[in-house]
């Protein structure tokens, strides 16, 4: 990711466009790290804002500028844990935000039902699986190095855990009314 290191150096030299590209590349990841800790929107927003302000003050002192995504993920994780440890900060207790699938994924009733089943199944996963998958599906997709930093999890265990969590997710989704066609797809 030499290109990312270039963006960090350019931003450190005052290049605003380079900074904006870093935001485009990594804000989805930082947001997903905050949300994977089940913080409310207000607390998650504070975590995201703090992470980017920390990066501003560290632009010219990062040891590995090419790993700025991992640095941001680590910073966001620590800030999220700090927020969680603060006793009366509100923790999001409802499983997931309301999902408005209807009408948004424009591919007919069958798709909508499949997606509703998948969404409900996600809520039935362990917290660890939910956190890992939430971060993996951030946009754009993060590298395993970044996922490792976001979860404080060894890189080598991400692939196997990902596979196990997805398998569990498919199992839950099938139990919640996925069609026979989907079942063939998953097992075929």
């Amino acid at each position: 990711m030499a290109e990312v290191a270039e963006l960090v150096r350019a931003a450190a030299d005052g290049d605003r466009a380079a900074w904006d590209r870093l935001v485009d590349r990594y804000n989805g990841l930082v947001w997903s790290v905050a949300r994977s800790h089940r913080l409310s929107t207000a607390d998650a927003s504070d975590v995201v804002q703090t992470s980017w302000l920390r990066l501003v003050e560290h632009l010219d002192r990062l040891q590995d500028p090419e790993r700025v995504g991992a640095w941001l993920a680590t910073t966001a994780r620590r800030e999220a844990l700090r927020a969680l440890r603060h006793a009366s900060r509100q923790i999001v207790t409802e499983e997931l935000p309301e999902v408005a699938v209807e009408g948004q994924l424009d591919a007919g009733l069958l798709v909508r039902e499949r997606d509703r089943a998948l969404w409900q199944a996600f809520g039935g996963l362990s917290e660890r699986c939910q956190a890992l998958l939430r971060i993996l599906v951030s946009d754009p997709p993060p590298s395993y190095d970044e996922v490792s930093a976001a979860l404080d999890m060894p890189i080598g265990s991400i692939g196997p855990t990902r596979a196990r969590c997805l398998e569990r997710l498919r199992g839950l989704a099938e139990g919640e009314g996925v069609t026979a066609t989907d079942r063939r797809d998953h097992h075929g």
Partner: peptide
Amino acid sequence: LRALFAHADPVPPRLDEAARAA
């Protein structure tokens, strides 16, 4: 799942602005 989260829990636009403004 990625498509679902993109719809259900996107980065709030004002937070993109805040990150740029940082």
